[in-house]
Structure formats: structure tokens, C-alpha cells
Simulated scan of single mutants.
Amino acid sequence: MDADGAVVGVLTSGTFSPTLQAGIGLALLDPAYKPGADVGVRVRNRVEPFTVEKAPLVQPHVRAQ
């Protein structure tokens, strides 16, 4: 969702990343939303703030602690 509550994409999957210690997800978004853009994701009837990032989210040499 954008700041006005309009739907801008569809979340295809989501989980908790033990390496990043945060929730992550993959989404199909409107191409206007570039890395760094803030969006809202509806999670169980509430909207959580997320930031658009380009994959990969973790560099290959990084290991979980």
C-alpha cells in the first residue's frame, strides 16, 4: 500500500530472516516503486511499514550469528 492506502502490488511470500533479524518478503510492485521507497504491507488486518530493497538482501559472504 502507498501512503494513501492504495494497493501498489501483491506480496508473494514473507518470513523472518535470522540473518537480518527482521521480517522480509517478496512482492510484485508497481515499477514506480524503486529501492528505498517506503510502502505498507497488510499483515493480519494491520498495516506494517516496509522499505523496498533490491535483491539479494544479504551479501553471499554474510553468515547468521
Rank of each mutant, 00 (worst) to 15 (best):
A27V: 03
G25R: 00
R42N: 14
R42K: 14
V62N: 06
G9Y: 01
V7H: 11
Y33Q: 04
V10W: 13
K54N: 12
K34Q: 11
V8Q: 06
P49G: 03
E48N: 11
G36S: 04
P60K: 07
Q59H: 14
L11W: 05
M1T: 15
V43S: 11
H61C: 14
E48G: 09
F16I: 06
V7A: 12
E53R: 15
G25P: 02
E48R: 13
A6V: 11
Q65A: 14
L20F: 07
M1A: 14
G40S: 04
M1Q: 14
P60Q: 07
R46F: 14
D4V: 09
V39Y: 01
K34W: 08
G40T: 05
A3T: 09
D30V: 04
V52R: 00
L26H: 14
P60W: 07
V8G: 06
P31I: 08
D38V: 15
L11Y: 04
F50D: 04
G5F: 03
I24L: 00
D30I: 02
V10Y: 13
S13I: 07
V58K: 03
E53C: 14
I24G: 05
V41Q: 04
P18N: 11
D4N: 08
M1E: 14
A22R: 11
N45H: 13
V41F: 06
S13A: 12
G40D: 05
